[in-house]
Design a protein around this nucleic acid. Sequence first.
DNA 1: TTGAAAGCGATACCAA
DNA 2: TTGGTATCGCTTTCAA
Lengths: 331, 331
Amino acid sequence: MRANIKDVSQAAGVSIKTVSRVINNERYVRPATRARVEEAMAALGFQPSQAARALAGGRSFQIALVCSNPGPYYLHGLIGGLRGRCAAEGVRLIVHAYETETDELGADVLGFFRQMGFDGAILTPPIADNEPVLDELERAGTPYVRISPGAQLDRGPSVSIDNEGAARAMTRKLIDLGHRRIGFVVGHEGFSVSRQRLDGYLNALRECGVTSDGALIRQGWFDFRSGQAAAEQLLALKERPTAIFASSDDMAAGVLSVAHQQALRVPRQLSIAGFDDTDLASLVWPGLTTVRQPIREMAEKAAELLFSGSDERVVMPAELIERASTGPRPA
Amino acid sequence: MRANIKDVSQAAGVSIKTVSRVINNERYVRPATRARVEEAMAALGFQPSQAARALAGGRSFQIALVCSNPGPYYLHGLIGGLRGRCAAEGVRLIVHAYETETDELGADVLGFFRQMGFDGAILTPPIADNEPVLDELERAGTPYVRISPGAQLDRGPSVSIDNEGAARAMTRKLIDLGHRRIGFVVGHEGFSVSRQRLDGYLNALRECGVTSDGALIRQGWFDFRSGQAAAEQLLALKERPTAIFASSDDMAAGVLSVAHQQALRVPRQLSIAGFDDTDLASLVWPGLTTVRQPIREMAEKAAELLFSGSDERVVMPAELIERASTGPRPA
DNA sequence: TTGAAAGCGATACCAA
DNA sequence: TTGGTATCGCTTTCAA
């Protein structure tokens, strides 16, 4: 049987409260006593029960990461960014990935949060904008940090990039390169960043006096396949775009794959731009520019806000990354 | 304050034991009684405390996924495959991603497992081969399922693919295409699958009477950069390989990116092969063949084994995926 | 089919 | 600096 706190207290000849003090690194324990207790703990291979600590202490030593249908790089960046701080704080990371499609209202997530007091939560779109979920969290007194919120903006701490601004800058860059027909692949409808990025694109066109053409705007779903589908449609237009801006990395990769296929016949005529949670996609097409969304750094920052109890709203810089200075220009 | 089981029992006019029976869906509760209790639970917004259930019941309602430096697709596949079953079983998924490099012995993981009884664990390489960790798990009576184990093979349930066989088949395919100088990028040294895949490559060469050349074999670390580095070295050889087989998807993508760069000068002379946790990389190079490791399906299977208590050792089929039937042949 | 009461293993207030 | 003891909210015998 596993040793418990009582066994340790007896072995060390102290009360359980003193053992508890040692476990929690509290003050008011004489060094000699502490040493004796630690010795006993080691000898018995004692590890405190998380369940008991959670019940008695009202802390679960767990935080939740909630995200919907995350792409591989996004998920990887989030977990990579959270990992270190969680370990340092002695806290477990519960990953709750759920289907947006089958649970539009977030009922699943609501149930998830009602079930037990987490010590904190990291929320990503679109659940980050879900009012009932935020209400529930606040009611339960669970601190949370939102990543890229798009609604309820005056509510609690968050980390984001300036999506509209980044998309605008990217579009302007394409315009500066001489492009006038720029295809745009919109992200998933349920995510507010999709709208923000589209707005950036439209605003840049308007500001630069470029007429926008609805035929150049295609709905995507943040995934590879929808990027492919959009690219196929765009490249089949009578008046082809000379550049395509896909508003996520998976979609950009989809566009890229189509471009590669078509490049067998029409090589490298196309500028491609994308939002990017990594730098993988940015290396396989000469005329590629991406807005790097520093998702890992955003997650790190989110962890920092969560554990420090800050309620800052942090906007991180998004970097425009050009792989080839010799990107193609339209004929 | 949150309602607890006692509040419910009073509201429903029954004992807490009866409420407990309802919570746990036990038999021997009269339908009418059950209905009354459920009504009271709903009225009070009652949700049982996980901590209390865990403490009293000896179950944590949590399983752990332990993996080291997982690549984006691998991680995504694992979580995607585990998600559904966990939700169905009412169990949380704790993701413990750790650094292989800073913790060669798995001490971190050992501490992790000692801390609390999980209801189960999914282990990936290289920790899946760590004897002390397996010992600890068995001592604590925590069921586990290993993915792609490479040691302690007669121990507990597992899910894998035939890595040696798949690598051999792939190599033979390249040989059949006429390739004689086939570069190979080895995976991370700490992972037994790396050795298995290398063996498959070497065995195929031997069986087909192709002389193996040490200069064509490069050490990689399963990541993009090491794939690039290896490709650069291989393509700088006096006697260039006509094909490169990278034994992971991230490395294959790295090889690909270098090939694309060089293709500006020497277009599409190279066959590329890779192991693949997705199908993304397989779409951007005409002469690409991959062994698809069905990691998501493997994770699903692992969850099934874990929750059913089976101790099967499942070997899943790995598929050879050719994107372009017109893959290049050496001159 | 239901209930009373004894834990589970920590935390935390209040004394000493 | 330490210790006694109530307490957290549920599960689980054992009776009834």
